[in-house]
Amino acid sequence: MLTSAIAFVSQGFWMLMLFDCIRNEPKGSNWMWLLIMLNFPGAVIYFVARKLPYLNLPVPSFFKRWTMKDALWNAEAGVVNIGKSHQYVTLGNVLMEMDNVDRALEAYRSAIEKEPGNTHALWGCATIEMQRQNFAAARTSLEDLLDRDSEYKRGEASLLYGKCLYELQQWSVAKEHLDFDVKRWSHSESFLLLAKIALDRDGDKVAAKSYLTTMLARLKASPRYNYRKNRDLIRSAENLLKTLN
C-alpha cells in the first residue's frame, strides 16, 4: 500500500515537472531529455535547478531565529560597543532577515538619529513602512533617499517610490515619476502601474494597452531567467489586457 502511494506521488511529481518543462523551457532544451531519460530523479534535478530559485518559498521565523542567532549576537554587540549608524543599520538588516520588523524599524531610526543622511537606514525605514501600508511615512523616507542617491540599489528605490505614489493615489506625480522610471530603469512593474493609472485616472484603454504590450514585449525579449522571475507580473499584465480587448 505504502509502495503504491509513493509510486503514485513520484509519478505525479514527474508529470508535473514534465508539463512545466514543456510550457516554460525553450524548444531544443536538454531538460526535456533529462526528464524523459531519468524520470523521477530527473524531475527532482529539474525542480531544484529550474523551479526552486523562482518560488521564493518563505522560511519559517523560528528557523531564521535559530540560524541567525550568531549574526544577531554580533550585531547587538556592535551597537553596544561602537554604536554608530553603521552598526544600527547592520542590526536592522539582521532583524529584517529574522522578520522582527518592529525592532528593525527602531534600529533604522536610531541610525538616522546618528546620521540623518544614511541612505541604507532610510531604505530600511521605507521598506518597512511600505509593508505596513504607511505610505505617507514611506514617501518621506524615499524622497530623502532619492535626493541623496537617485540611483540607489540600481533603481529599486525609484520603483518603490513610484509604487508609493500609486498607493497614495497621487496620479499626476506618480505618472511623471513612473514615466521617468521606465526611461531610466525599464522596470516592468512601472509599465503595469502606468497602465493602471491610465485606466483609473483617464479611462484611457489605448494608453493602458500600449504600456502593457510594451512591457510584455520587453520581458519576452529579455533573458529566460528574467522572464521566469517575472511570471506573476506577466500574468497580471495578460489578465488586464484581456479586459481591454
Rank of each mutant, 00 (worst) to 15 (best):
I45E: 04
Y46E: 02
Y46N: 00
F47T: 00
V48H: 03
R50K: 11
R50S: 05
K51I: 11
K51H: 06
K51T: 06
L52G: 04
L52W: 09
L52P: 03
P53E: 02
L55R: 11
N56H: 08
N56M: 04
P58Y: 09
P58R: 10
V59D: 09
V59R: 14
P60A: 13
P60Y: 12
P60Q: 12
S61F: 05
S61T: 15
S61I: 14
S61M: 14
S61A: 15
S61Q: 15
F63H: 13
F63P: 04
K64C: 11
R65F: 10
W66A: 12
T67M: 07
T67I: 10
M68P: 01
K69A: 14
D70T: 12
D70H: 12
A71D: 10
L72D: 07
L72W: 08
W73P: 00
W73V: 11
N74E: 07
N74P: 00
N74G: 00
A75Y: 07
A75G: 12
A75F: 06
A75T: 08
A75V: 08
E76K: 15
G78N: 05
G78Y: 05
V79D: 11
V80A: 15
V80G: 03
N81C: 10
I82F: 09
I82S: 08
I82Y: 10
G83P: 03
G83M: 06
G83W: 04
G83Q: 05
G83Y: 03
K84D: 13
K84Y: 06
S85F: 07
S85E: 12
S85R: 07
H86F: 11
H86P: 03
Q87T: 09
Q87K: 07
Q87G: 05
V89G: 01
T90S: 12
T90Y: 06
L91Q: 11
L91K: 10
L91D: 09
G92E: 08
G92Q: 08
G92T: 12
N93T: 04
N93E: 11
V94C: 10
L95Q: 05
M96N: 13
E97V: 09
E97F: 07
M98C: 13
M98P: 03
V101I: 13
D102N: 14
D102E: 15
R103M: 13
R103V: 06
A104F: 10
A104W: 07
L105S: 08
A107N: 04
A107D: 04
A107V: 04
Y108G: 00
R109K: 13
R109N: 09
R109G: 02
A111R: 00
A111G: 02
A111W: 00
I112H: 01
I112Y: 01
E113N: 07
E113G: 01
K114M: 12
E115A: 02
E115H: 01
E115K: 00
P116W: 08
P116D: 09
G117D: 06
G117N: 09
N118V: 00
N118M: 01
N118H: 03
N118E: 02
N118C: 02
H120T: 12
H120F: 15
A121I: 07
L122Q: 03
L122F: 04
W123V: 00
G124D: 01
G124L: 02
C125S: 06
C125K: 04
C125H: 03
A126Q: 02
T127S: 06
T127F: 02
I128W: 03
I128D: 01
I128S: 01
M130G: 03
M130N: 12
M130E: 06
Q131F: 14
Q131C: 10
